[in-house]
Simulated assay, not measured.
Amino acid sequence: MSNRFVLNETSYHGAGAINDIATEAKTRGFQKAFVCSDPDLVKFGVTQKVLNVLDQNDLEYTLYSNIKPNPTIENVQTGVEAFKKSNADYIIAIGGGSSMDTAKAVGIIIANPEHEDVRSLEGAVNTPNKSIPIIAVPTTAGTAAEVTINYVITDVEKSRKFVCVDPHDIPVIAIIDPDMMSSMPKGLTAATGMDALTHAIEGYITAGAWELSDMFHIKAIEIISRSLRGAVANTPEGRADMALGQYVAGMGFSNVGLGIVHSMAHTLGAKYDTPHGIANAILLPTVMEYNAEATGTKYRDIAIAMGVEGVENMSQEEYRKAAIDAVKKLAEDVGIPKDLKDIVKEEDIPFLAASAYADACRPGNPKETSVEDIAALFRSLL
């Protein structure tokens, strides 16, 4: 059996990297951009930083901002219609996972009109054509959507999220500019940073992990663990390191999958509109405890990467606990809630558990699970 690995054609890293958008657009002969960005980023002038680059280089664009924090089927549908009217030939996605996911779905449907029914994109779909070219500019250090082959759409009618996996949706260019992340508030920085840590840890222990993906994930855990506190404090070094750490995690998990932390977080987002990073951060330590017996010596590596001292002298039980405690401490230090009691209603747990079990991330979990196990995990956090 072979292992596939898919990455961007090109990525730019560092302060001022957004200026390379103009060079790439001109070199590739692009004529007009369809700019996808959420309304808050437009309102607070973050999107304008990229629009200024386009204006200064006489590059045409249309702005689309009908995007919700957990993007919906309707957001994608209106985006498709707006793209058709725009006469654009490429997409610039500016924002976090919401903008990126909307852009990916729009780009895939424009290139593959037989998938105009957005629900038809659920799961691993082998679309025949590559997406309309996407230049992805993240404004959060967490989702790594700029380097992944995944996107997530909310089906409001059915109160569920569905994961789409398609190598044809990966952005051709990723622009990782920490200056685009400097205006993130502390709470969002903490939540998206813990999302990135979840990607790295789940990717490291997922059933599909192998040596190449392990290399990315263990380095991402190290970078995120040392830099998230600084990023929340808005230090330049913390921002820059988190921008890199979340991208490195994305390079890994995009190719090997995740686990039930994400399955459970997806259903919380669909049911209660819970921010994805917050959901992941609350769930991660509890699910790590649940999965520990199926992870071999990997929690030892996680503990070391997170800076725990004396791991070489610990028993298996001790280093597993140390890894989990390090995650809990980081979450506490950046202000993440400890439980779901203000989010989940007891009567919703059967639906939440069934939905999480059906999620595309669940088969990657290192430990075989069940609807009943997932329900118990939800209840343990009330």
Score class of each variant (00 low, 15 high):
168 H>N: 15
168 H>C: 02
168 H>L: 06
168 H>M: 10
169 D>T: 15
169 D>I: 15
174 A>L: 06
174 A>K: 05
174 A>V: 08
175 I>N: 03
178 P>L: 07
180 M>C: 10
180 M>Q: 10
184 M>N: 13
186 K>S: 15
186 K>M: 13
187 G>Q: 13
187 G>R: 14
187 G>N: 13
188 L>V: 14
189 T>I: 07
189 T>Q: 08
190 A>D: 06
191 A>D: 14
191 A>N: 12
194 M>N: 09
195 D>Q: 05
195 D>N: 13
196 A>M: 13
197 L>Q: 07
197 L>F: 11
199 H>D: 10
200 A>W: 03
201 I>T: 14
204 Y>M: 09
204 Y>P: 05
207 A>S: 13
207 A>F: 11
208 G>S: 15
208 G>N: 15
209 A>R: 03
210 W>C: 15
210 W>L: 11
213 S>T: 15
213 S>I: 02
214 D>A: 03
217 H>V: 01
218 I>W: 00
219 K>Y: 00
220 A>S: 15
222 E>G: 08
224 I>A: 05
225 S>Q: 04
227 S>T: 12
227 S>P: 11
229 R>F: 05
229 R>H: 13
229 R>A: 14
231 A>C: 13
231 A>V: 03
232 V>W: 04
232 V>D: 10
233 A>E: 15
233 A>F: 12
234 N>Y: 04
235 T>Q: 02
237 E>P: 05
238 G>V: 12
239 R>H: 10
240 A>Q: 05
